[in-house]
């Protein structure tokens, strides 16, 4: 009785697994099939495309740099410092991963907008407004992408043998030397994986950006925004741009696979 059942299960699993894979592959195949390859060069070399691509790269790389600057210390605190409310704080700072990005954009407006909690002070005190600026794009992208870096680096720090840091201290290394010459180099794979993941997330960011930073070519119109708006006027061009985004993301994920799975 048990034998035939045992033989049947892998087949059913295989079928479901195949369906699961097809569910992801078919939309991509559709994009590939419907893309007007003949117009690809024209669509890609259009000034507004290049402008959006440039802005996307600048903003996403800046967002990644900001994520590293603020996210690594945050991950360090989560991994090394015990304090009441740590889990709650971690959950709060991880929220953007599951929050609809538009909600994130609204939240950013309410905090950093002209009438926001802090934004009001910024405008009155320093004349700084963040919505509708490239800085606003960077903020929106950082908001949604930094959690990826924080979680990855925290995991790396937790799996690091902290006795290496003790060994460094017995050799006379102070806090910063230990951090710079031992801790960070040892968690380099996690740092790299976290940075690339958060960069990829920033590159694809749409909802928070359009909500918080609006849409203006050359200033706040990133690739995903251009794709979305082109879909209405020139769908073919938007297919091509979608493929560019897709190729970048795929390259990142394939390149990252080994490091991600084999992270220390």
């Amino acid at each position: 009785m048990t034998r035939p059942r045992r033989e049947r299960v892998p087949a059913a699993l295989g079928l479901l697994a195949g369906l699961g894979a097809a569910f992801f592959i078919l939309p991509l195949a559709g994009l590939l099939a419907r893309a007007p390859w003949g117009d690809a060069l024209t669509a890609l070399s259009a000034p507004e495309t290049l402008e959006a691509l440039r802005l996307s790269l600048v903003a996403s790389l800046t967002a990644t740099a900001v994520s590293l600057l603020l996210g690594v210390p945050l991950a360090w605190v989560y991994a090394r410092v015990e304090f009441p409310g740590r889990n709650l704080l971690r959950a709060l700072t991880t929220l953007p991963m599951v929050l609809p990005p538009v909600v994130g954009g609204i939240a950013l407006l309410l905090a950093f907008g002209r009438r926001g909690l802090l934004g009001m002070l910024l405008e009155r005190g320093f004349g700084i407004t963040l919505p509708f600026t490239t800085a606003g794009v960077v903020m929106a992208e950082t908001f949604v992408s930094m959690p990826f870096l924080v979680l990855t680096v925290e995991a790396g720090l937790r799996s690091l043998d902290s006795r290496y840091e003790e060994a460094a201290r017995t050799l006379g290394a102070g806090r910063w030397t230990v951090l710079g010459r031992v801790t960070l180099p040892l968690i380099a794979p996690s740092l790299f994986a976290g940075a690339v993941l958060s960069w990829a997330r920033a590159l694809g960011e749409f909802g928070a950006t359009i909500t918080f930073a609006g849409n203006f070519p050359g200033r706040t119109q990133t690739m995903p925004l251009a794709v979305y708006l082109l879909l209405e006027s020139r769908p073919e061009a938007s297919f091509i741009l979608s493929l560019v985004l897709l190729a970048v993301s795929l390259a990142v994920l394939v390149g990252l696979r080994d490091r991600w799975l084999g992270s220390p």
């Binding site: 003790e166 060994a167 460094a168 201290r169 017995t170 031992v182 180099p185 040892l186």
Partner: peptide, 27 residues
């Protein structure tokens, strides 16, 4: 620790895996 004039040889040595032998000794 870092200001005590000590040297420690740890049980499994804890040599820094990302540094060369020379850099370990010069650390």
């Amino acid at each position: 620790t870092e200001r005590r004039p000590i040297g420690v040889v740890f049980q499994d040595y804890l040599l820094f895996p990302h540094l060369s032998v020379l850099d370990n000794v010069a650390f």
